[in-house]
Design a protein around this nucleic acid. Sequence first.
DNA 1: TTGACATGCAACCAAAGAGTTGCATATTGG
DNA 2: CCAATATGCAACTCTTTGGTTGCATGTCAA
Lengths: 105, 105
Amino acid sequence: MDDDPVFKALADASRRRLLDRLRKKNGQTLNALCRGMEMSRQAVAKHLLLLEEANLVAVKWDGREKLHFLNPVPINEIAERWIGKFDLPRVSALADLKQALEKRR
Amino acid sequence: MDDDPVFKALADASRRRLLDRLRKKNGQTLNALCRGMEMSRQAVAKHLLLLEEANLVAVKWDGREKLHFLNPVPINEIAERWIGKFDLPRVSALADLKQALEKRR
DNA sequence: TTGACATGCAACCAAAGAGTTGCATATTGG
DNA sequence: CCAATATGCAACTCTTTGGTTGCATGTCAA
């Protein structure tokens, strides 16, 4: 219902990269996700926490390891009920724009 | 090619609202878009500038009025080539998650 | 049991963001 | 021409954010 945390979470390139890496290989630990990120472990942990709070990542503890799993549902929800709105008016919008651009002269 | 400005632009609820209002009625002036927003005209202008820089809004001057037009193309591009990636792994991701959740015990 | 490993918590910092106010500029209508 | 209208520009404030460092905690393996 509340898109805001998802949009906010997606606004950062590092977080989008983390999601992308989870998409390729699901269930990675914090340490594994740190590799290749040019920042401290704590910084990565913060990003993952934001993704978790946006419900884009689910977490499972296995002993001392924290496993991270991608949850694509919120992204698909946004795609369907928010981005979908901008699909229909596409043609008419471009028509309006063209019309306006030629309005004067 | 560079998604970042678009994601950043979409990260703010006021800007999403502005896009929504343009979707309903295209080609509005700055002043028209200010109505109903609980902030100064300058604040709204800043938001519109960000949307413009993200190529989500196109602008046409008509005398002293600045007309704003929605450009849904970047949104659709993101939907197709970024969100689409999270469509295919949906099932397997949920399967992995379920499997992981039942891994222990 | 103990050292090494995986993570969490908290304080701190610098930069970016969202908003304000005040003033400048350009266009229109009377 | 002039006043009202529509917008731009710039400086300033406050909060959020992305990052750091230092230390604490919990778990595994030898």
